[in-house]
Design a protein around this nucleic acid. Sequence first.
DNA 1: TGTATTTATATCGTTTACGATACAATTATA
DNA 2: TATAATTGTATCGTAAACGATATAAATACA
Lengths: 142, 142
Amino acid sequence: MEQLKLSNQFCFPLYAASRFITQQYRPLLEKLEVTYPQYLVLLVLWEEDGIPIKEITEKLLLETNTLTPLLKRMQTNGLIERTRSKEDERIVTISLTEKGKKLQEKAEEIPNDLLQTLECLNIGKEDMLKVKEVLEKMLSNV
Amino acid sequence: MEQLKLSNQFCFPLYAASRFITQQYRPLLEKLEVTYPQYLVLLVLWEEDGIPIKEITEKLLLETNTLTPLLKRMQTNGLIERTRSKEDERIVTISLTEKGKKLQEKAEEIPNDLLQTLECLNIGKEDMLKVKEVLEKMLSNV
DNA sequence: TGTATTTATATCGTTTACGATACAATTATA
DNA sequence: TATAATTGTATCGTAAACGATATAAATACA
């Protein structure tokens, strides 16, 4: 069965590359003392602070059963606060603490640092953009 | 900071797409009663049976601290056997049981089933191949 | 108004991932 | 031949992921 060969799987490189890149992020994120998924939450909040958990799940395509404990860890680490909305008591709003806001300055170098790491790995910018474009097209249908 | 916007991240779509595709595999793999990483191990063993754990770690780019418990679960489920090599007692060889071998027949439809799922999501074959090629190029430098 | 449905979040259980560390078997080297 | 370094696997702890389920609040509707 030719199709069952690992080298013919389309999804395996995706799976392996995703893990690989998370590993490349790790040393960069150590300065911020956050994990990669936590960094994604910060990216969202730096763009728009004080939003409901629901909105974060939609942007990151993660379920609350992943985000709830993750956000609790971020709260324990003093990065965010949780406020239950008064208009609708079901909604929990997430906002950055001062510490969480200040972390953005430290994060400014990260995108370029990572880009450099990737360019050292034979990945050109055009190829990256093409991959990004195709995958975003796929995800837009989710 | 434009570069810190989620939409400008190259790695987020990779991360999200990888999780998304694993989710697409789930219903297909239910027939085999395996998870996606376990399916990857089966793909490796169907190609070459009776190989050391070390070789599986190299092919799947996973560490033994991930594979050891995963393989134990597969053993519990009767898919594989573990044999400690006599020439070198450090090496543990993994081989398929009859049940594990037979599962390959059931798996034959999976690659096409998944392809169909993806094609329903605006992903053409050329785009998939391009993504595969770029990511494999990246991983070849690991 | 009372009941059903939906919504937003949380909890539980299982399975990955993976850094750090341990450990026994093998190999290299002094 | 001791001892040091390496190798292959395992263990531990922590943090995702995610299906299934629970729960309280809000909304729809009979």
